[in-house]
Computed example of a mutant assay.
Amino acid sequence: MDSPHGAAVKAEDFGLKGPRGWAFRGVGIDAAPGSLIAVEGPSGSGRTCLLLALTGRMKPTRGHAEVGGHRLPKRMTAVRRIAALGPVTGVNELDQALTVAEQLREGALLQRHYGAPVRAMLRPRAERRAAAEARIAAALEAAGLDLATLPKGGRTSVRDLERLESVRLSVAIALLGSPGLLALDDLDLKLSDTERAEAWNLLRSVAARGITVLAVCSEAPADAIVLRTSPKEPDGSAGPDAPAVAQGDADAEAEAEADAGAGSGSEIDTKHDTKSVSENDDTKGADDALAEAGRA
Results as ranks from 00 to 15, higher is better:
D13M: 01
D13P: 00
G18Y: 01
P19D: 12
R20I: 01
G26V: 05
G26S: 14
G26K: 03
G26Y: 05
A31D: 09
A32T: 12
P33A: 08
S35N: 06
L36K: 09
P42Y: 14
C49F: 02
L51P: 02
L54M: 02
K59T: 13
T61C: 03
H64N: 04
V67P: 00
V67D: 11
P73D: 10
K74F: 05
K74A: 14
A78S: 11
V79E: 07
R80K: 01
G86Q: 06
Q96S: 12
Q96G: 01
T99E: 11
A108S: 10
R112A: 07
G115T: 09
A120W: 11
M121R: 05
P124N: 05
A126K: 03
E127H: 07
R129W: 05
A130H: 07
A132V: 06
A137N: 09
A139V: 13
G144I: 14
P151K: 02
K152Y: 12
R155H: 15
T156F: 00
D160F: 13
L161A: 05
E165W: 07
E165Y: 04
S166K: 15
R168H: 08
L169A: 04
G180Q: 01
L182N: 03
L187D: 06
R196Y: 02
A197E: 13
A197Q: 14
E198F: 06
E198Q: 15
V206W: 13
I211R: 10
A215V: 15
C217Y: 01
E219R: 08
P221K: 04
A222P: 01
I225P: 03
G236T: 08
G236L: 07
P240C: 02
D241E: 13
A244C: 02
A244V: 04
G248M: 06
D251A: 08
A256Q: 01
D259V: 02
A260Q: 05
A260V: 15
I268Y: 04
D269T: 10
D273Y: 08
D273H: 05
T274Y: 01
S276Y: 14
S276W: 14
D282L: 15
T283V: 08
K284Q: 04
K284R: 07
A289Y: 04
A291P: 00
A291Y: 00
R295L: 13
R295W: 04
A296I: 11
